[in-house]
């Protein structure tokens, strides 16, 4: 596979997903980029914007095995990872795989489970493996988690710990569609589309899990200039020095930003990263990793504002200015 093939396949994936999920081009783009970069995606948005639909659609078009966990306050870690169950017939403990043993996992309303259960995802997300009773079991490849959370309802929710947040490669905010897009959605439904019956939507499977892995492999060949490395380091460094930021982005964020920039470059048929790739994806990579000072939060400063400041101050490499 070469960058042109990558771009063509990526465009097909994007277009196929956009057939179902109308008016959420940025959401689809960022999610696909993150998936191809080997990361996990945290999708935040009010109910009814198609977050779950996106994940189901994505599972369909990439041909990945798909499982869904509805996070609730009484969800236990073993409900996620699975556990050893004594088999009386065989007189031994047998491991029963939890829903995490899949390629695409939808962690719906992830912030409704307590931190203990959320932490069950930590190892899986970072090491792509699950350890139970001292036995580490690898997860199928490719493995990626798409988690959703609702920013409005705070009662009975458990904010994700920083360690958990940091493991999400990107956080995508889903916004309300425009009036024109909403009309399209209505017409789509009026013509018989049912989000619960995606099999009737005649979605094409664009890639297989193996092809997805091949696309991921190609990213390692995307060239990264030293100027890009400096630019990424500058951006992440500035996030730690920003006046409104209490805790800046980690080196994992730098690595993640590099990864998505490579994926972005490949998605446009390039075999090299340009500053635009970094700048376009920096908000998605950094916004959930910045912890703001309380006074900044009181003033109404958001993480996106801080990232915007950082990008306005960071000098683009090899610029004419």
């Amino acid at each position: 596979m070469n960058p042109t093939d990558f771009r063509d396949r990526f465009d097909l994936l994007r277009r196929e997903a956009a057939r179902v999920l109308l008016g959420q081009d940025e959401l689809i783009l960022h999610t696909l980029i993150a998936v191809l970069a080997g990361g996990h995606v945290l999708i935040e948005g009010v109910p009814g914007l198609g977050k779950t639909l996106l994940v189901r659609t994505l599972a369909h078009v990439v041909g990945a095995t798909f499982k869904r966990i509805q996070f609730t306050p009484d969800l236990m870690p073993s409900d996620v990872t699975g556990g050893n169950v004594f088999n009386q017939k065989e007189d031994r403990f047998v491991f029963h795989e939890g829903p995490i043993f899949t390629q695409l996992l939808l962690a719906d309303e992830i912030n409704r489970a307590p931190a203990k259960t959320q932490s069950a995802l930590l190892e899986a997300m970072q090491d792509l493996a699950v350890t139970s009773d001292g036995v580490t079991r690898p997860l199928p490849e490719p493995f990626f988690v798409l988690a959703t959370q609702n920013p409005i309802e705070s009662q009975g929710t458990y904010p994700l710990p920083e360690a958990q947040l940091d493991r999400f490669l990107v956080k995508v905010n889903v916004k309300h569609p425009s009036a024109a897009v909403e009309k399209l959605i209505l017409r789509n439904h009026a013509s018989g589309f049912n989000a619960a019956r995606l099999d009737r939507a005649e979605l094409q499977q664009i890639a297989t899990a193996e092809e997805l892995c091949a696309m991921r492999e190609l990213l390692s060949q995307v060239r990264v200039d030293d100027g890009i490395i400096d630019y990424i380091a500058d951006i992440v460094g500035r996030s730690r020095a920003h006046r409104s930021v209490y805790l800046g982005a980690s080196p994992r964020a730098s690595i993640g930003l590099l990864g998505v920039a490579r994926a972005m470059a490949a998605s446009e048929g390039r075999d090299f990263v340009i500053p635009d790739d970094v700048k376009a994806l920096a908000p998605a990579v950094l916004r959930h990793r910045l912890i703001l000072h309380p006074d900044a939060e009181i003033e109404g400063v958001s993480a996106d504002d801080c990232v915007g400041d950082i990008l306005r101050e960071a000098k683009v490499p090899k610029t004419a200015a």
Binding site: A280, V316, T319, A320, A321
Partner: peptide, 27 residues
């Protein structure tokens, strides 16, 4: 680099773009 910088300076001089260190070529 210089030829491209000349182009940007001309566009900047014509008021079509505004050159800034934080702006990318895509911008």
């Amino acid at each position: 680099d210089d030829a491209y910088a000349a182009l940007l300076r001309r566009l900047d001089g014509d008021g079509l773009i505004e050159i800034h260190p934080s702006r990318t070529n895509g911008d």
